[in-house]
Every structure is written in C-alpha cells, then in structure tokens.
Design a binder for these strands. Sequence first.
DNA 1: CTGAAAGCGCTTACAG
DNA 2: CTGAAAGCGCTTACAG
Lengths: 343, 343
Amino acid sequence: MTAPRRAPRLIDVAETAGVSIATASRALAGTNGVSEAMAERVRQIAAELGYVANAHARSLASGASSSVGLIVHEIDDPYFTEIASGVLGLAAERALAVQICHSGRDPRVELAQIRSLVANRTGSIIVAGSGHVDPSVEADARAELARFQADGGRVAMIGRHNVAADAVLPDNNAGGRAIAEHVLSLGHRRIAIASGSMGLTTIADRMAGIQEALAAGGRRAAKPLVVEAEFTREGGAAAARQILDDAPDTTAILALNDAMAIGVLAVLRERGLACPGDVSVSGFDDVAVAAHLGPSLTTVRLPMEEFGRLALGMTLQPVASRPRKKHTGHELVVRESTAPPPG
Amino acid sequence: MTAPRRAPRLIDVAETAGVSIATASRALAGTNGVSEAMAERVRQIAAELGYVANAHARSLASGASSSVGLIVHEIDDPYFTEIASGVLGLAAERALAVQICHSGRDPRVELAQIRSLVANRTGSIIVAGSGHVDPSVEADARAELARFQADGGRVAMIGRHNVAADAVLPDNNAGGRAIAEHVLSLGHRRIAIASGSMGLTTIADRMAGIQEALAAGGRRAAKPLVVEAEFTREGGAAAARQILDDAPDTTAILALNDAMAIGVLAVLRERGLACPGDVSVSGFDDVAVAAHLGPSLTTVRLPMEEFGRLALGMTLQPVASRPRKKHTGHELVVRESTAPPPG
DNA sequence: CTGAAAGCGCTTACAG
DNA sequence: CTGAAAGCGCTTACAG
C-alpha cells in the first residue's frame, strides 16, 4: 500500500521550520548558540515529522562515535551473557549503541569480528573471551587492536590477554586457591580436576591457584589427576567419565567453570554416584543457575556483570599514558555439592 | 607514544595504487567493471595499509544497510539469550552487524530503543519481547515501527504483537494445553498456576491453553488457583509462597516459564516439601539449564534459537504483500519434577 | 575497463 | 543568534 517513501531528513525539518539546516542541527543537538524559542520550535517540528537523525551521517560529519563493540565467545554461555548484560546496562545509561558478535573462541573469527567493529567505527571495542597462553595465537588481533587504538579507538580486554590495552582482570588465581583450600579443608585427598584447554589464560590461572593450594597442602594430598576437555557442559561430562574410569577412588572433582561442573554432575547421576555423598563437585564463576542445580553448586563467584560495566567504563574515560588494569575480587560460595569425603 | 593518526581512507589506497577512488571502490567491492589484475593489486595494497572501509560512509553513500537491530527484555534471561544466539549465528553467516538493546519490558524504554535503531539505520528491527494484551500499550512502538517500514526498513516480531509486521509465533497455546494434559493424566486434581502478568500475550496464550485442557478435563479437576507475579525467579517464589499458604493441598504447580519454576522449586525446598513427592512442578520454555536442575524440570520446549534465526531470516527476504507469520512448534519434555500426586 | 563528479545527510568552523 | 559553505568517506550513475 504505502509506497516506500523516504525518511525525513534534517533539511525537511529545517524547511518546515523556515530555518537553515545549521540552526536546525544546533537546535536538535542542544548546542548553545540558538535561542531557546527557536530550539523549542525546531524540536517540536522534528517530533511531528517523526525525524530521527541519521547516525551514519552524524558520525561521518562529526567524527564522533556513539557505539561500542563487544566480542564474546558465545552469548549463550552464561559467563558471557552476564558480561553482556553489564555492558548493555551501562551503555543504555550513556545512550550508546552496542554491537555484539561471537568469536566462537576461534582466533580467525575473532579477527574478522574486530575488523567488522573497526569498519563500523565503534568508539570502543571490548573483548571478553579468554586470552591465550601462546602470544602468537592472538598476534593478528593484537595488531588490529593496536591499529584501532592508534587511530583513536578505545579498547578494553576482559581477562589476561597479550594486548597492550586497558583490562579487567578476574581473580582467577586466588579463586582457584580458595576452592582448592575449601576442598582440602573438608578432608579430601584424592582430588581430580576437570579442566578446559590449558592454552587459555583463564584456565592456566585457575589451575595455577589450585596447584599452589594443593602444593601448600603438602603431603596431605596426592597429586591431582588433571583431565583436559572442552570448556563446556559436554567437556565436563567427558572429563568426569575419564576421571571416574582412571581414578575411581576420587572423592572430589574440581571443574574449572560451572558449565563443566554441570556436566560432571550429570555423569555422577548417570553412574549412580551421590553428590556430595560419594563425590564432591565444585564449579567456578557462579552463574545464575549454580544456586539452583541439584545439588546446588559450591563455586567461586566472579562479578561478571561488573566486568562488563568496568570494561565499558574504562573505554569511556580518556586514554591513560599506559594501559589501566582493574583487578576484581572473588567470593567462595559453599553450597550443597561439597562435603567431607565418604568413609 | 604513537600520535593518534588517522585511519587510512579509500583515497589513500587509491593514491598508492595510482588509480581513482572509483576504481579502488569497485575493486574492493568486488563489483565487475575492473580488470582482475587491477582488482588484485588494489586489494593487496588495501591489506598492506590495513584499510577497513568506513561503514558509515558506505551506508550513507549506498543507502544500503548491513546491520540489524534486536530488542530483548533482558539479555540475561535465558529465553532471550537463546533468541539472541540464533540471531547472532545467522547474522554472522550473512556478514551482518547486530545491535542489541534491552527494553526491560518497559514500553517507553522500548520506544527509545526502537528510535535508536532507526537512527542507526539498521536494515531491520527484531522485537523479541512479549506483546501486550492491551493494544494501547504498544501504540507508540507500533507507530514508530510502521514508519520505519514505510521508509523501507524490515521488521519481525517474536511473539504475538499488535503490530503489522512479519512475526514468529511461538506455540504457546498448544504448549499450555500439553503441559496441563500431562499433569491431569498423572492424576493431579488440585492444580495451581504461577503466572506472570496477564497483560502479556505470551502469558495469556499459555494460560488459555492450560484452561482449555483443564476445562476439557471437566469434572476431574477443581478450578485452578492462579497467582500472578513477576515473570521471573523471584516472581515464581512469591507465587509459590502464596499458593502454599492459600491452598496447602495443591499437588501440582504449573509455572508459566522456567524462571518461575526455579523459584517455585526453591520455595518447596525452603518449606521442606519434596518435588515431585509432595508437589509436582512444571516450567515452560526448556531453557538450557532446565535439564540440570534438582529435580530436573518437566517443561514445554520452545525452539528459541530458531525464533531468532527465523525472525532474522524473514527480514532478509523481500517484503511480502501482507505480513508473514511463522508458526513454530513445541515439545512436551517430561523429566523428574512431575509425578503422580501423593497418596 | 577507468575516471570525474555528484550526492548520501549530517556537523562545524567561519562570517556576519 | 543565524546562515552559507566546506567537508566527513564513501558509492554510483554518467561519460568516455
């Protein structure tokens, strides 16, 4: 029916208001240099016409950007969902548009996504995936982000990355120590670890904290069995199967994130083992559902939503002479899934 | 250190290639009308210079858009997270940028977000929140979306809305019927419903399906107690408390989404009631964690990720003469949380 | 196959 | 306080 007409432009409101587009622009921008009466009149006409300024033209003309880019592994992963929620929340307060994309933890996809954000001239880019222990993996992304920053863009990384940029640093090491100490204090001595890829700095840091605590526990605990798998529910299940096959006398399984812990719990049920009766299980992150699992999950709470707000907040501040690092805290949350070992 | 230089522009690559910007533009766009040799040369120089086309300028000049907007209630809510994941997945395949924003289920915020997407000239807008039974609530959004479409924009709604646009329609009514029939067939007669706001079409449709099944169950079941609360975990908990206080002989509580069901489960534990031993509980949606709760949750699975893909897919197709509606299915998923009533 | 030029819809010095 | 004009970085008829 309605023929595709054109959206009203600034010149349309200027003409019907009988002023120049310069004046109309100033009135709408709230810039001073326009009489309040004129400004009010222009605004009203703009509203009547349903005028909405073209952000592309505005950005092109002003050079300013009112958008931010966020790269997550996968929005469906609660860890990243909560980070995204934090970013979206602060962005809304600042009237910033947020462009979100998946990296799928594939460095090549991540590079493509960075370039997409650069193309869209977002004012800042937030990378929320884990860093890689091998710096060469992130080489291309590092170069692209460096160029982006040289061109005036702002960057914040969440997690430990080999990138010269502001960063939010989760308390992975201390969190790892806390969860290991908790399990040791419960009396567990045959401990296994369901780990994600050791190539990720997030894993490496959590693992390091755990190993420190275990080493400090000295003669008390046997060397833990470490099984590496996908950093997902399925990975947790696979790791649990191998642990129970290779070391059936294990009394505690530390999963390096909550998703893996959920997989571990599933395998325990599958094999008719009680948790925490036969085997204690712990997670990491404290995603929203951890408290509602059966049994509820002992884990290390990380303030993911705050990660998002902090990261965006940093990019909204002027560049510092050197990259800023924000260290965040953790909290050990003891629930039903851990208890003293049987016997 | 590095003085904020300027990002390379098309003219920079054109000059170093010794060609006009027209030729450079065509070479990079892959448009025909350029010799392959020339095109290859330009591409290589662009790569060396680290050139990334300015999407704003491109969009302004071409009038085309390579981005889509997605409005969700809250990304942190798994229902919307999965929808977003579907949108992001298909968008990545089509090289589309996705701008996501929260409406917080507040019509005024939603309107502001629609305007933000219009300003950013996204090619299409996907609205994923529930519709409202009262059409006047969505009046402003409806007008804005109509204008957007008249201007050539594409719109897809997820859920039943009073908006003339393409839509993905979840199988809420039949799903409601299925879950109610399941509970009836188990032998429950004193049934209560933990409902979200009846002003939402999603709720109204699920409720209607349930009531139909209950009515068909005829003399078998008593009129169900319906308690309205927030459509969240906390709302579910509040509803459960009231249900147990007002009708302590209730043997089954149907929650109208999984989040509410989780809240119901928590209250049951809190009061020392066994599920499903004393009270059966069901959810709706089948979010990823439903299978891992304690007890695992009987619910109605809706293909949320597919909602996202379908909605985006519709907006990528040419406008039809009249709005297209895609009806999707549901699947009753029986798990541990429902069983025959005690006694 | 290639280029000169107009134009996309704004903002912002620069004058008045 | 207001306006004429240049310019942001591209694309795309229009010529050749």
